[in-house]
Simulated assay, not measured.
Amino acid sequence: MNWIKLENSAQLEEIKQKPFALVFKHSTRCSISSTALDRLQRAWKNDEIQEISLYFLDLLRFREISNQIAQEFGVEHQSPQVIVLQNGKVIYHNSHYGIDYEEIKNQVNAKSLV
């Protein structure tokens, strides 16, 4: 996975313009977050999913960006959390052990066929 570090709120405007974007909110102090990230990275197959921009948010360093994401996209903050957007609209979100590569892949690929 080729992560783009999400480090400033101006990047949220960039994310809104992407056909598909995934934001992974990660807490470096949380073992559940580390496990969820590892599971996602091990399952990820670039050839199975349509083009998607992958953003990684370090919650301990950039909590204010997480708060802004919750406000702008209407998704309550969780950690760990994955949010998938299509043209700036949330099409999938989940947290903790509910983060699932197959669900993400199915949501993105189904939306890209429309």
Rank of each mutant, 00 (worst) to 15 (best):
V75G: 06
E103A: 09
F73S: 04
H93Y: 07
L6N: 08
Q41M: 13
R39Y: 12
V114S: 11
I99V: 10
A21M: 04
G88E: 01
T35G: 10
R39D: 14
H77T: 08
F62Q: 07
S9C: 12
Q11Y: 03
N109C: 02
Q50A: 07
R42K: 15
S9W: 07
E14Y: 01
E64G: 05
I32R: 02
A36K: 06
Y55F: 11
L6D: 08
I32P: 13
K111V: 13
Q78Y: 01
I104M: 04
K25I: 15
F20Y: 10
Y92N: 03
F62N: 12
K5A: 14
K25W: 10
R61G: 14
M1C: 09
A10H: 09
Y97H: 06
I32N: 06
A110K: 12
S27Q: 05
Y92A: 01
K111S: 15
R39N: 15
S31I: 11
Y101S: 02
G74I: 02
S31H: 11
I83A: 01
Q50G: 10
S79A: 02
R42E: 15
E14K: 03
R42F: 13
D58W: 03
T28D: 12
A43F: 06
R39L: 15
Q41P: 14
E76V: 10
S27K: 01
I65K: 07
K25H: 10
Y55G: 06
E103C: 04
K5V: 14
T28M: 08
L54V: 04
S112D: 13
K45R: 13
S66N: 11
R29Q: 14
E14M: 04
E14P: 12
E13P: 13
